[in-house]
Design a protein around this nucleic acid. Structure first.
Length: 269
DNA sequence: CACCTTTCCTGGTGGC
DNA sequence: TGCCACCAGGAAAGGT
């Protein structure tokens, strides 16, 4: 599952292949993604690529005509291949470049998106996004201010993209453990001091994950076995029923908005 | 084979 | 009563 670190890694991986190139055209084999692939993409022809950016989990490819938005959803991947490379199952969209290479979007579950926003304005999907977790405008103070009076579980609160972007299920659980906060606690009933700790925990976990090259949990659990960053660092995620690494209390499992949550009932209050 | 995954949207509710 | 903010739940699809 691509979390923010994986998206960042993908961006860095494709950037050298796209910067300075010209987008010759777009081939769409399957337009039924999370939203239909933007019709306007079909008409794009010979567009110089001006730059690449990441915003939350969106990859943005900037053209003079507008902006391409790519979201990997749950199962999306981007690869740079030579033109003519045989198609695999679920290879839905190709961006053809002027050097004979192709940026190929593959997504079995089709929760991803490939959209186009004409002109200079931001796409509506980007308008309501909160700050980047690693930016200076994401602070404990902001979490505190925005949470007053809110009854929603603090875990759901920090996973809300309007609060801060890019905090997925794994990072939310790990950050709450590091900060010693019970995931079910009402967001409005967490003190300023504890939100300071939580903001720092979120930054630390994400920064380390990006540093590790965005390797995901599932990659570690696959058979090739190389123990990586998360395998060693995960303190609560997926460990319900096992002892807390700090106090040996058996970790509990809970559920917030359809998502599983593990936590230590002793260390997290 | 039911479950699990992300994100946005919808509909219901409660407060003012 | 009317409106808005808030929050829970639903939907998409396929691999495991």
């Amino acid at each position: 599952m691509p979390e923010l670190p994986e998206v960042e890694t993908t961006l860095q991986g494709i950037r050298p292949h796209l910067e300075g190139r010209v987008l010759r055209g777009v081939d769409v084999r399957e337009a039924r993604l999370r939203w239909p692939v933007s019709e306007a993409l079909y008409a794009l022809k010979d567009c110089p690529v001006l730059g690449l950016k990441r915003r939350a989990k969106y990859l943005l490819i900037q053209l003079a005509e507008g902006q391409l938005l790519i979201h990997l959803g749950m199962s999306g991947t981007l690869r740079v291949v030579e033109a003519g490379t045989p198609l695999r199952k679920h290879d839905h969209v190709d961006l053809r470049l002027d050097d004979g290479k192709v940026l190929r979007f593959n997504d079995p579950r089709r929760f991803g998106t490939v959209l186009f926003q004409a002109g200079a304005a931001d796409h509506p999907l980007l308008e309501k996004l909160g700050p980047e977790p690693l930016g200076d405008d994401f602070t404990g103070e902001r979490l505190f201010d925005r949470s007053r009076g809110r009854k929603v579980a603090v875990k759901s609160f920090i996973m809300d993209n309007a609060t801060v972007v890019g905090v997925g299920n794994i990072y939310a659980q790990e950050s709450l453990f590091l900060a010693g906060i019970h995931p079910s606690r009402a967001a409005g009933r967490v003190s300023r001091e504890r939100y300071d700790r939580l903001a720092e925990a979120i930054k630390a976990v994400l920064a380390k994950a990006i540093e590790a090259g965005g390797t995901t949990l599932r990659d570690f659990t696959r058979a090739d076995g190389q123990p990586g960053y998360f395998a060693q660092s995960l303190r609560v995620y997926g460990r319900a029923g096992q002892p807390c690494i700090q106090c040996k209390t058996v970790l509990k499992a809970d559920r917030h908005g359809q998502r599983s949550t593990s936590y230590c009932p002793q260390c997290q209050r």
